[in-house]
């Protein structure tokens, strides 16, 4: 077995005196795709936030390359692309402005790259439109356009398929699978049933591991 890039050791999560899950052990190595599923309130989002270092576990630890996430903040930050429920899109800024700022948080991207990424998610012609005039699905696409830029290896995505139309869903599935085939890692939550699964696809059902 190759060394896991990201690993949880007896991870437990407690929210407002309620135990969501405990003794959770997950391993993610390059090429893996992990779908976290489970009923509402089973701690899907909390797990993703723990893995991206936004939250601190009540017990156990998250390991990055075998070392605690506390010591590996820099390593994780350089390799992580996190898309939360709210994806950091400002309604008052245009699609291009939003994307170029979010890209600058990582490596930065040129104007051409950003226009190309927006075209990839089907937003050609919307580059200069303030995002609050876009539909929910289109706003989601602006956020997802980050995945078409020079993106880091580990993607942690919370409900990426929300508000997308059928065609966009198929396209995103393909893109996620491609990323994994190229040695990237994808961890995501969704209630949607994935059609396009790479060989490394796994599902983690928190409804079963939880109490």
């Amino acid at each position: 077995m190759t060394e896991a890039y990201l690993e949880t050791v007896d991870l437990a999560c407690e929210r407002d005196w309620r135990l969501l899950f405990e003794r959770l052990n997950v391993r993610v190595q390059p090429g893996d795709m992990l779908q976290v599923s489970g009923p509402n309130g089973s701690g899907k989002t909390s797990l993703l936030r723990l893995l991206s270092g936004l939250m601190h576990p009540s017990a156990g630890d998250v390991l990055i390359k075998g070392e605690s996430i506390q010591q590996q903040r820099g390593e994780l930050a350089r390799n992580l692309l996190w898309l939360g429920h709210a994806a950091g899109i400002k309604g008052l800024l245009t699609a291009e402005e939003n994307l170029s700022w979010l890209a600058a948080l990582h490596h930065g991207a040129s104007r051409e790259q950003i226009w190309q990424a927006l075209a990839d998610v089907g937003l050609k012609g919307f580059e200069d439109v303030p995002c609050h005039t876009l539909s929910a699905g289109q706003q989601r696409r602006v956020a997802l356009a980050r995945l078409y830029l020079d993106a880091p290896a580990l993607w942690i995505l919370d409900e990426p398929f929300t508000a997308l139309d059928k065609q966009a869903v198929t396209q995103l599935e393909r893109h996620l699978a491609q990323h994994c085939e190229q040695g990237g890692m994808v961890i995501f939550t969704t209630h949607h049933h994935l059609q396009d699964r790479p060989a490394t696809f796994r599902e983690l059902d928190l409804g079963q591991t939880a109490l």
Partner: peptide
Amino acid sequence: DGSLEQWVV
């Protein structure tokens, strides 16, 4: 809108 999360990570 989730910007803070992006800054933190």
